[in-house]
Design a protein around this nucleic acid. Structure first.
Lengths: 201, 201
DNA sequence: GAATGTGAAATCTTTCACAGCC
DNA sequence: GGCTGTGAAAGATTTCACATTC
């Protein structure tokens, strides 16, 4: 259970957490590695091994307690802490993310939104007032933003990313169609639908 | 170059394609595996090996021709064909995707949009008229939709997915916060921002 | 009886290192 | 000199299979 947890395992954890939430909502109390594997299209052995890196959550002969395991995973993933996020680029996509309910109660809070268009600055979207990107630096510091969401046209993507990194964010959620460059200690996740789709062939 | 191409390599290809597009726009003619590796945070050896599965695209002593390689990859990824997509769920996120320019000229065309809310049915978003989900089946067949985008509340996710699969789509882009179950021959890609974010810890 | 947790084996992926080419 | 393409080595991940627990 100690030191070395494989990278891939960590990337799968959120999927486990998500499916457990679903199972809990459906009223399932106990689930076997077999059943989890069916749901996630993985082998039961993989599920068991993955979970075993973090502790012994199961009961032999029965399986895993859905609610208990879910709570464990949420804790491991840091979902009981709250992370502050800032959005840069309030276009169609940015606007959708701002009003997207999904972040709440998953431990994320959108605390600032920026755009370069003076016409948008000052207007209210959701609970936030759009600020000019020039205010990025002070605001990120002041509201302790840890994650930046990049939703600007590709051409500005790197500049915005650099700026966010310079402000000290620890992670970037990239919604733009470009490949961000960041230092090793900053995380990047891509949610460009085009990239996601292309690998389907 | 023949048979067995690793799964992971295929998943990386769209990233390569994307960065080559960027390089081309910046006017770069030739790029080395070293330079590509820097941009993608990968080792030069990995880049070379990945590309070698598909052919010998590079020139020793110089590197890879940006435009040429880009064209090769686009072909391998089937980006020169056009894929038809249908969106189910015209909420905030769905609406953003409908008006999202990014799909065009990447070989994807949004050809239909569905919602269950009678208040939305009939209204126009982008170039499409929203149809009732009851029309899903005939429309998908008629407009030869190959990819379905699921952007509905989690509770309806599986029903919509099942329906799309029953209509014969080959891929699902899942934007909802649930874990879809599909037959083995259907692809699923997740673009739930919450899942993407959670694995940052 | 049923299902976990886990070393060991099998498989997959990355990296090394160098011959060959421009 | 610089850089690709590629077998072989190293490393990571998945699967097997079984002792163990409930």
């Amino acid at each position: 259970m100690p030191a070395k947890i494989p990278e891939v395992v960590i990337l799968r954890l959120p999927l486990y957490a998500r499916i457990l939430t679903q199972l809990e909502e459906e009223g399932t109390d106990v689930v076997s590695s077999q059943a989890l594997g069916d749901l996630l299209q993985a082998t039961p052995a993989q599920i068991r091994k993955d979970l075993s890196y973090f502790g012994r959550f199961g009961k032999q002969g029965r399986g895993y307690n859905v609610r208990g395991l879910q709570r464990e995973l949420r804790q491991i993933l840091g979902l009981d802490r709250t992370w502050n996020m800032a959005l840069v680029g309030v276009g169609q996509l940015g606007r959708a993310l701002l009003t997207y309910g999904g972040f709440e109660n998953q431990g994320f809070r959108m605390v600032a939104a920026f755009d370069a268009d003076p016409g948008k600055v000052g207007s209210e979207v959701g609970a936030l007032i759009i600020q000019h990107v020039a205010d990025l630096r002070p605001t990120v510091a002041e509201r302790s933003v840890q994650v930046g969401i990049v939703a600007v046209p590709a051409a500005y993507g790197q500049d915005v990313t650099d700026e966010l990194v310079a402000c000290g964010v620890k992670g970037i959620l990239n919604c733009a169609q470009f490949q961000p460059r960041v230092p090793d200690d900053v995380w990047v996740r891509d949610i460009d639908p085009v990239v996601a789709r292309q690998s389907m062939t």
